[in-house]
Simulated scan of single mutants.
Amino acid sequence: MKAIITTFVATIALSAMAASTAASGPLKDRVAAGQSIRIGYSNEVPTAYSAADGKPTGFVNDITLAVLKKMGYEKIEPVQTEWGGLIPGLNAGRFDIITGGMFILAARCENVKFSEPIYKMGDAFLVPKGNPKGLVNYEHIHDTGATMVTGSGYANIAHAKAAGVDATKIMEVPGPTEILAAMQAGRADVGAGTPILVKQLADSSGGKLEATNSAAMPKDSFNWGGLAFTKADQDFVDEFNAALKDYVGSQEMMTAVAKYGYDKDWLPGEAKTEWICANR
Rank of each mutant, 00 (worst) to 15 (best):
I157G: 04
I157D: 10
A160R: 00
K161V: 12
A163T: 10
T168M: 05
K169S: 10
E172W: 02
E172P: 00
V173H: 00
T177F: 03
I179L: 04
M183L: 14
Q184L: 10
A185M: 12
A185Y: 05
A185S: 13
R187W: 03
R187P: 02
G191T: 05
A192P: 09
G193K: 02
G193A: 01
I196F: 08
V198M: 10
Q200G: 15
A202F: 02
A202D: 01
D203Y: 10
S205V: 08
L209A: 00
L209P: 00
L209C: 03
S214W: 01
S214F: 00
S221Q: 08
F222K: 07
F222Q: 09
F222M: 10
N223G: 15
W224T: 11
W224P: 12
W224Y: 10
G226W: 04
G226E: 07
G226F: 06
L227Q: 08
L227Y: 15
A228N: 02
Q234F: 05
Q234Y: 09
Q234H: 15
D238I: 01
E239R: 09
F240C: 08
A242E: 02
Y247M: 09
G249W: 04
G249E: 12
G249A: 13
E252M: 02
E252A: 13
M253F: 06
M253S: 11
M254D: 04
A256E: 13
A258T: 06
K259A: 10
K259P: 11
Y260W: 14
G261V: 01
G261P: 08
D263Y: 01
W266H: 05
L267Q: 04
A271L: 01
A271Q: 09
T273Q: 11
W275S: 14
